[in-house]
Computed example of a mutant assay.
Amino acid sequence: MHIKPHLTTVLYTLGLTSVGAFGGFIASWLHLPLPFMLGSLIVSGLIALFWSSVLPQGFVFPNSFRLPFLMVIGVMIGTRVTPAVIAALPGYAASFAMLTVFVGAAHWFNYLVFRRIGGYDPATAFYSGTPGGLMESIAMGEEAGANIALLTMQQFLRIIIVITMVPVGLSLWFGAPVGSAAGQTLARTGADLHALPLVIMVGVLGLGVGKIIRLPAAQLTGPLLAAAAVTISGLADLPVPQSAVNVAQVVIGTSLGIRFAGLRGRTMVKAAGLSLISVAGMLGLGLLCAMILEPLTGLHLDVLLISFAPGGVTEMALVALSLHANPAIVTIHHVFRIVLTVLGMGLAARLWPSLGKQRPPR
């Protein structure tokens, strides 16, 4: 029987997500941090690396399947935005200023790593080294003539390594399990499924407005702002159950891990090594910034470190939730980081005309 291509994609997406869920349960049983996201990421990554032949040719995990779960996470984070958080925003001026310095220094460091150590051409090194703005980096890098395969690999490795290292590193820092590894919950205790239709409605509305006004990471920040407006105004209560959070983590983790399909050999090993150097440097710089800011802002070191960790808005918001840091504050910092990075890429494209002249080997 002939199966239509789109039906094949649906079946494989559901199958991979189911396998990812199994990995999430195993990780939860092992008390790993962010078990449902990391467990599904590991399992799907192993499939992509070693059994990619079982996937249809050209298979890509559909963003349309991932989108609703990103919206759920965005809405849940938005419900944490309280009037007290809004009133405290002026007090974050010092951390925003430090974040501006961090973005410039991190991007310069990464460029040197990928250019001098990795031997990448200027465009690939520059856009691989951005400390944020994954999709924008890929789009602008392709226009500049960067090697898209290497660029995509490095950007996803950045996110994956950060969301793995940060919770584990914080557990070692405090000398005891933290976040989900310590049994903390990510959602409101006792929440059931009755509010999910309203959660989805708020998420869709926020996504639409976010895309219209071109918010960075609109799939997350749009629903976040919509949920924050609903919560602060008192229009409705938006409890998100733990089961919905777990499913969202599985889908996000699976979609990240499957990106490794077709990547193997020396190129993969080299890219992983470069990413480890890059991420270690950025996390070290972020830790230094957090230590400087802690006495100035009154924020806890772990909240500041997560705010500077370059792991992507969605993923680092999940880390913040698992560690019971304030996800709204963390997300605000990450949106600011992405905006700075995108502005920096645009400025570099104008002031550095030779950036895209050297076409990389294909």
Rank of each mutant, 00 (worst) to 15 (best):
V240M: 04
L170N: 00
S275E: 01
P241Q: 07
V247Q: 06
A272M: 15
F336W: 11
G118D: 06
S53V: 02
F59C: 10
P197M: 12
P35F: 11
M268R: 13
V168R: 01
A309H: 02
S95H: 00
M153G: 11
G91F: 08
G169A: 10
A272W: 03
L283V: 13
D121F: 04
Q154Y: 12
V247H: 04
F96D: 05
L198S: 09
D237V: 12
V54L: 11
S18C: 13
G257P: 02
M98Y: 08
T17R: 01
S28V: 12
S180H: 06
L170D: 07
A181V: 13
L30H: 10
G265K: 13
L321D: 04
L32M: 15
F25E: 12
F174T: 15
G298K: 07
L112W: 11
A88L: 06
L225K: 05
A218T: 05
D121M: 09
A348E: 03
P5D: 13
Y120K: 06
V103S: 07
G175M: 12
M268T: 12
S52L: 02
P327V: 07
R158P: 05
L238H: 03
L205D: 01
A88T: 08
T297L: 12
P239T: 07
A125L: 08
L11D: 03
V204G: 01
E294L: 14
A290F: 05
P68I: 05
G286H: 02
L347H: 04
L220C: 00
P353D: 08
L215R: 05
L224A: 09
A217Q: 04
G257S: 07
I277F: 11
G45T: 05
F59Q: 02
Q219S: 11
P241H: 07
V75R: 00
M268Y: 11
P177R: 10
R116F: 05
V269E: 14
I163R: 01
V202D: 03
A229P: 09
L172Y: 15
R259L: 11
H334E: 03
H2S: 14
L70Y: 00
S52I: 00
V250L: 13
L67A: 14
F61S: 07
I26H: 04
A105T: 15
I252S: 12
P62A: 13
L323A: 07
F36K: 10
S44K: 01
R266K: 14
G39R: 02
L151S: 13
L283R: 03
L16T: 04
L293A: 12
Q154T: 15
M201P: 01
V101Y: 03
A195K: 06
M291R: 12
L172F: 13
R66K: 15
Q184L: 15
L256H: 00
P68M: 06
T9F: 01
T124E: 02
A349H: 03
G141C: 11
V279Q: 04
Q57E: 15
G190N: 14
